[in-house]
């Protein structure tokens, strides 16, 4: 009886996986073999390996890497300080709150702030630096992307740090490690799992960002996400759009697999 009810509970889960994970991926793979007239073709894959798309893949990677890196640089100390504050749950809530606001709304707000006559430039003017172009630069693109992704990076790192047994730190200190050594040899390795899941959660969506590339970067940054959007909406070339999506899925799998392996090795080392 018990086993049967357990299986019963699993049905919605299996259905969910089949309908919303496996079926879409299969559909994407299927479409990636069709040309614009719906005939079978391998041309889309050949097109993907042309300089235009390869360059686009490289740019996407580069920007996603930068975004993840800056997220990590900001998020780790923040999460670390958070665990030391008195009202950590309240602070956490305040940090998560902006992610409840619609992305588009936040992007529009940044257009206003970074604009030629916006707040940021007014501030620079007052400081005597003089106004300069902020919107539609690499800087603004990475800044806004980092701002948007930061809560997703802080959350797993915070959880890992919060769960960290304080006695490890005490032990390290007792054994004569400096603060820096404690951090480098004890705290950081033990929270590596949080860092990894944070990086995954940021890097993968950052790879396919598309709205910000237009709104904040003014199409001066073109990512794979932009190309997917254009292929589907403008060209109605679902084949090429799907081919790019297939590569995004493959890249995602590779990243997850690589970081999982890293995690396992890390665990082994701990033992």
């Amino acid at each position: 009886m018990k086993a049967r009810t357990q299986k019963l509970f699993l049905i919605p889960y299996y259905l969910w996986i089949a309908l919303f994970v496996i079926a879409p991926i299969l559909l994407i793979v299927y479409y990636s073999f069709l040309d614009i007239y719906g005939n079978f073709t391998l041309k889309n894959y050949r097109r993907f390996f042309s300089p235009v798309y390869l360059e686009m893949t490289l740019t996407s990677f580069w920007y996603a890497l930068l975004i993840t890196l800056f997220c990590l640089i900001v998020a780790y100390p923040t999460a670390y300080l958070l665990t030391r504050t008195r009202y950590k749950q309240l602070w956490m809530l305040l940090i998560i709150m902006p992610s409840w606001i619609n992305l588009l709304l936040k992007a529009y707000a940044f257009i206003g702030i970074f604009g030629a006559h916006g707040m940021a430039n007014a501030l620079l003017e007052v400081l005597g630096i003089g106004s300069r172009q902020i919107l539609y630069t690499d800087f603004s693109f990475i800044f806004v992307a980092v701002y948007i992704f930061i809560p997703f990076m802080i959350l797993p790192i915070f959880n890992a740090l919060d769960k960290l047994d304080k006695t490890y730190i005490d032990a390290a200190m007792d054994l004569g490690a400096s603060r820096w050594q404690t951090f480098l040899r004890v705290i950081f390795p033990l929270t590596l799992n949080g860092v990894k899941s944070g990086c995954q959660v940021v890097f993968i969506p950052a790879l396919s960002l598309f709205m910000l590339t237009r709104l904040i970067a003014g199409n001066r940054v073109i990512t794979l996400g932009t190309a997917v959007e254009q292929q589907f909406l403008v060209n109605q070339d679902w084949g090429m759009g799907s081919t790019i999506a297939v590569f995004l899925v493959i890249i995602m799998f590779i990243i997850v697999a690589l970081s999982e392996r890293g995690v396992r090795n890390g665990k082994k080392a701990k033992n």
Binding site: Y108, I111, A116, H117, L135, L215, A217, G218, R220
Partner: peptide, 18 residues
Amino acid sequence: IKAIVGDEMKMLLVNEEA
């Protein structure tokens, strides 16, 4: 070219972005 934009063009024109 400063940027290639979408619907926000109206707002950008009004704000004298370019």
